[in-house]
Simulated assay, not measured.
Amino acid sequence: MTDTAPHLVPVFDGHNDTLLSLERRSNTPKERSFFEAANYDHIDLPRARQGGFAGGLFAMFTPSQLKKPKEGEERDFSSPENFVSITQSSAFDYTMKLADIAYEVEATSDGEVRICRSTSDIKSAMADDKLAMMLHVEGAECIDKDFEALELLYNRGLRSLGPVWSRETIFGHGVPMQYEQTPDIGPGLTDLGKELVRQCNQRRIQLDVSHLNEKGFWDLARITDNPIVASHSNVYSICPVSRNLTNKQLDAIAESKGLVGINFAVFFLRPDGRMDPDMPLDVILRHADHLINKLGEDGVAIGSDYDGCLVANDIKDVTGLPKLIEAFRKADFGEELIAKIAHKNWISVLERAGI
């Protein structure tokens, strides 16, 4: 990434759906290339360089509906068709397809993209001005009850996993994305879900509580020996959407020396819960302030959900990241705190998880 502007603060992002976006636009009239700037979607290499996007956790998510959305069409996650259960075999095949896309991006990047299996790999890639890509599974439908797929994916580079998306699985229950509804919906982790936590701890795979319901959150908190991480969630007391975190949950994350990545989805940010991208960056600052007060300066990061959500017009894609950094400056966050939120805290929490 040799043409990255030197004054940019590098951002390591806790969550994006770029691999899904690349797959869904493959073999279409507007087939995506990660190496060409586009005026749609959120992340590609030229725009990453422009915005200071240094890498992140790239999600491998299997949607219920594999059909590609129409150009310019936002995914309607309130539609029941998006919550239909999927089989383990189909989810595993799709996850491996997304992993193949990641490795193809790395192989064809002329060394500009590196798949990272450890924090030392991330540090090395960032020091060399290369884009650091670490693989994450969002929703563990691809994992079988005997955990053979977990081992295969770990060997493939998997280092972070969310037990559920907002669907029921053999491991637990996700939260629907509903306004003015709490995350205390449904039962907790199943026995297999509790064993999944232990299996991930043994392999030093980071566990992600985003999308997990509240009872599942507390089950995971009681079992895990790693910091509790919510890769892309916001503050429930500011925006009462069931996907967001209550103050009691934030206290538990703080006690574990964990982390929350601020999600850019306007539906999870706006106090009115509207799907309206005409939103000032001050709303993000309000969530950031609350998280800093609850978690401390080492517990807050970015988990954009780029390529998976509707974001504010001012940060419409990765080229908008410098606007957010400047908003932090104007709010007197200070350069060290900004660097922590932008990338240092993600690297530190992955190190604490033994990755």
Rank of each mutant, 00 (worst) to 15 (best):
F61K: 02
E351I: 01
R167T: 12
A5Y: 12
D128C: 10
K344R: 15
K70W: 09
R47P: 01
A125L: 09
D298C: 07
R286C: 13
L245K: 06
H42N: 06
P46N: 04
H290I: 11
Y154P: 03
F34R: 04
L22Y: 03
I122H: 05
G320Q: 11
E214H: 05
R75I: 13
Q199S: 09
V229I: 13
N226S: 12
Y94I: 08
F171G: 05
A132T: 04
E141M: 12
E71R: 15
S79P: 06
P80Q: 04
M133Q: 07
E74A: 14
I238H: 08
S78I: 06
Y154E: 09
L189E: 09
A37M: 11
P46S: 02
V300A: 10
A38Q: 15
I292M: 10
L269A: 11
I253M: 09
L22P: 01
E23Y: 15
G55F: 09
L135I: 11
A5N: 15
I355W: 06
I223N: 10
I325Q: 01
D13V: 01
E31Q: 15
V241L: 14
E112I: 02
G172Q: 03
F92G: 00
N16E: 08
E73G: 09
L337D: 12
L250G: 02
F147A: 07
H343Q: 09
Y103G: 00
S109F: 06
A5K: 14
D276G: 02
D317Q: 04
P163T: 07
V197W: 08
S348T: 14
L158M: 02
I355D: 00
E73F: 08
I238N: 07
E151P: 01
K67N: 14
L189V: 07
D100M: 12
R47K: 14
V229N: 05
S160K: 06
A353T: 08
A342C: 13
F268M: 14
V349A: 05
E31K: 15
F35R: 03
W218M: 05
E106M: 11
S242I: 05
L310A: 04
N263T: 02
H287R: 03
D3G: 08
P183H: 11
M126N: 00
V209Q: 01
I302N: 05
E73M: 10
F171E: 07
L269P: 00
Q181V: 14
L192P: 07
N247P: 05
R243H: 10
P322I: 06
D332I: 01
A107L: 06
L158D: 02
F267N: 12
L250I: 04
I284C: 14
Q178Y: 13
N226W: 09
N247I: 06
H136E: 12
R222D: 15
V209W: 03
T246Q: 09
L150P: 02
T246N: 06
G72E: 03
G296Y: 01
R352I: 02
G188A: 05
